[in-house]
Design a protein around this nucleic acid. Structure first.
Lengths: 225, 225
DNA sequence: GTAGATCTCGACACCGTGTCGACTGGAGTC
DNA sequence: GACTCCAGTCGACACGGTGTCGAGATCTAC
């Protein structure tokens, strides 16, 4: 049995072979980390051309300059590669998060516009990965779980903000904050995946933020700016 | 080359062998139509248990009491079966459509609640098919096209209603009606697929209609009832 | 220089798909 | 009541993708 390689998804620092990090000598064979990165890069490149189902492990391996069995040293399956890719996008998205201001929010339209724009930017810079993960979510429990974890984070946050706005008298009462935040988050999610996957009907990129903003402001504050 | 069987999707009456319809004699071998129906029934049953990717053609064939090659006499692939299934659901949904009232709508809350309920009812009675089609949509162009056709229909209709309401002075101006209808339709679509596929986060069935109704009314009329 | 971990791949077993060609049995001639 | 036509049926095959195993090369540390 070959040595198993953890192939780090699940956020935490890429630990697998960090001790090998500081080695600038050009070795005859590319290092393991370089190969892993090459597989991921190949995957993201190919995903921009065709769905995951039409990409074989042979494609990923040869794209990274290795043989098919060697692929399995780095990842246990195609799904695992997508999981890693999605994990990196998620990390990036977390970093792009807009800091939450105290309620009442001085300029709600500006604030929510920033939130929407940040969200769009984070996932929009990896359209292919987002679209592939969206496609895989329904049929793959692990992808689905990671996606759910992300979405639940946004929903929790939005629900807390809505509650704070209501408590501060800035927003009127309405449906329970959590349910309202869920409906709005699902709208945003779906609007973006439709755009990224070139599906119809979809909101054109130029109008996406303003249209969603109108719905959010109306639903939360009862008034569109 | 075996006789090709059209295996009627695309709405129109199930024409393939209608001439065989009026035959009550119990023949030693079930008729072709019965077999086709058996395959569809097996597919819908199995889809309630596991995703399409984990259902083999062998499963469908044996479930319908035929061998794998015989399956290909009736359908050209698994995807074809799902397409037929989705087509039937779409027909059912079209039949459940709420007639459009003249603007201004006397009781907008009641009207939009009916629309949402009808939508939920039509797809909710075939959760498994809806969830499977949702999953396949992103990776299969044909499923995607059929789904798009359906969604575009709803969006067109909703956009026309919003425009009429505005023209009648019942709803204030706002984002272009088509974009607003798109955002709201995507929200409704996603809320339902999340519910049907038991994904998180999702709106619980009991609160789904009222929450979505609040968002729709706020976004279209500027006021939640 | 040698021990142990890391990394590599040829060869294999397996499974699901889709096709081909031969067969079966009932329905419609005459 | 033999004949032929055709919808329907399936055994056997070819193929392509997945994942594993075991034998190796190569690097690192001491």
């Amino acid at each position: 049995m070959a040595t198993s390689r953890p192939s780090a998804h699940h956020s935490s620092a890429n630990g697998p072979s960090a001790h090998r990090a500081s080695r600038s000598r050009r070795s005859s064979r590319p290092s393991g980390d370089e190969r892993e990165a090459a597989i991921l890069a190949t995957a993201e490149r190919l995903l921009a051309e065709r769905p995951l189902a039409e990409i074989s492990i042979e494609d990923l391996a040869s794209g990274a300059g290795i043989s098919r069995p060697t692929f399995y040293f780095y990842f246990s399956s195609k799904k695992d590669v997508l999981l890693s890719l999605l994990d990196r996008v998620a990390e990036e998205a977390d970093r792009a998060i807009v800091p939450r201001p105290p309620s009442p929010i001085a300029d709600p339209a500006a604030f929510w516009r920033d939130v929407l724009t940040a969200f769009l930017g984070a996932f929009g810079s990896h359209r292919a990965v987002t679209a592939a993960a969206d496609a895989a979510r329904a049929s793959d429990p692990e992808i689905g779980a990671l996606w759910s974890r992300l979405m639940t984070g946004w929903v929790d946050r939005d629900a807390a903000i809505i509650e704070a706005e209501r408590a501060a008298g800035a927003a009127p009462d309405g449906p329970p904050a959590r349910e309202l935040a869920t409906a709005l988050s699902l709208m945003v999610e779906r609007s973006m995946t439709a755009l990224f996957a070139d599906q119809e009907p979809a909101l054109p990129r130029e109008q996406l933020v303003e249209t969603l903003l109108h719905v959010v402001l109306s639903a939360v504050y009862g008034t569109a700016a």
